[in-house]
């Protein structure tokens, strides 16, 4: 791509991108970006600065996932990747942060309510609602330990549950009920193992939020600087096209037939499932073979889940020698996320 002497380095001011510095989120972020042609260079694990050689206008900063929101909010970085749960929690009242892409496809977890297993009388959110009233009658308050006070409070209020108090806890959340400084918890879980180990259980209707990694930006900084907006668009387009590509496979088959038209018509008109013949339709090209003259190469792009159906359809059409490849990117006529993002950016 570009090297240091290319005109690309003639940018205005660098775009500062904050990425998670360690843990699973760091690894997944790094592999997503390299899959999108934006491999991150980090001199060493203990370095807090890095770069993306293919996009030299970007300065990378490594931060704790929990701090990335704050950095973006205060404007010390322009863009950041962090958990959607953090964004929702910290974002309350901060109008200055815009979510650019909310489903990066990793770091998935759920924010849930969990009660001690011994509460055999509590299996749903309604039981919990009743329990808060029972507590109130007895002059007690149900104490919920959480690192997500804003989300928890607002969600419970929406369910008309108001008699509770929040206990803020840093770390070892799951132990709070057994240690006695809270009655139950609201915390993120991905597999539920930690909850079970601490003798806690989820309750029906008690999921507050489904979260995964997301890309966020500072509204004001992006509004004010068209070059930053341009870089954001590049990142977003590459990520979107790469994530889209994961949904598709490309199939190339040799098909015997009288003419390209005949094969094409058969393929399009004899499939029972829509979408079997590719995003728009098959691409058909003549195969120049020494022995026989009536071979054609047919290429279609279909959704991953339709792979076998598409293969069978091609077989029925007389296809053989099928090769399947996964595309690295699938671009549409324009980036959907970018349009949505521009709308959000305009909102006050």
């Amino acid at each position: 791509m570009t090297n240091d002497k290319s005109p690309m380095t003639n940018y205005q001011s660098p775009v500062r991108l904050a990425l998670p510095s360690k843990g699973a989120l760091e690894r997944s972020t790094s592999s997503l970006l390299s899959a999108c042609g934006m491999s991150v260079f980090r001199p060493s694990d203990r370095q807090y600065f890095g770069s993306i050689p293919s996009l030299p206008q970007i300065n990378v900063l490594f931060q704790r996932a929990a701090d990335i929101f704050t950095k973006v909010e205060e404007g010390s970085v322009d863009l950041g990747i962090t958990g959607y749960d953090v964004v929702c929690e910290e974002g309350v009242g901060h109008d200055n942060v815009v979510v650019i892409h909310d489903r990066l496809g990793y770091g998935k977890c759920e924010l849930v309510l969990a009660v001690p297993e011994s509460w055999v009388d509590v299996s749903s959110i309604e039981d919990l609602a009743e329990l808060t009233l029972l507590f109130k009658e007895k002059g007690k308050t149900l104490r919920i330990a959480t690192k997500y006070p804003n989300l928890t409070r607002d969600w419970l209020y929406e369910k008309l549950i108001v008699n509770f108090s929040l206990v803020s806890v840093q770390g070892a959340m799951e132990a709070a009920p057994s240690m006695g400084y809270a009655d139950m918890i609201a915390d993120v879980t991905s597999t539920g193992t930690t909850l079970r180990e601490n003798r806690l259980k989820r309750i029906a209707g008690g999921t507050l939020l489904k979260s995964q990694a997301c890309l966020i930006g500072n509204k004001r900084l992006l509004q004010d600087d068209p070059t930053k907006l341009d870089t954001t668009k590049t990142i977003l387009e590459l990520i979107e096209a790469n994530l889209n590509a994961k949904k598709y496979v490309s199939i190339t088959a040799n098909v015997r037939g009288k003419s390209a038209d005949e094969i094409g018509n058969y393929l399009v008109n004899h499939s029972e499932l829509s979408g079997l013949t590719g995003l728009r339709g098959p691409t058909i090209a003549k195969v120049y073979s020494k022995e026989e003259k009536d071979w054609y190469a047919v290429t279609i792009v279909v959704e991953q889940r339709m792979l076998l159906a598409a293969v069978n359809h091609l077989r029925n059409t007389g296809g053989s020698d099928m090769t399947i490849t996964s595309p690295d990117y699938v671009f549409g006529s324009q980036s959907q996320n970018y349009q949505v993002f521009l709308e959000r950016l305009k909102e006050d």
Binding site: P116, E117, S118, V120, D121, L131, L134, P177
Partner: peptide
């Protein structure tokens, strides 16, 4: 083997159940 110890007493849990 469900232990009813903790912040709520067993009586209360069973009553509500």
């Amino acid at each position: 083997n469900i232990e009813l110890a903790g912040n709520r007493d067993a009586q209360e849990i069973v009553d509500r159940l």
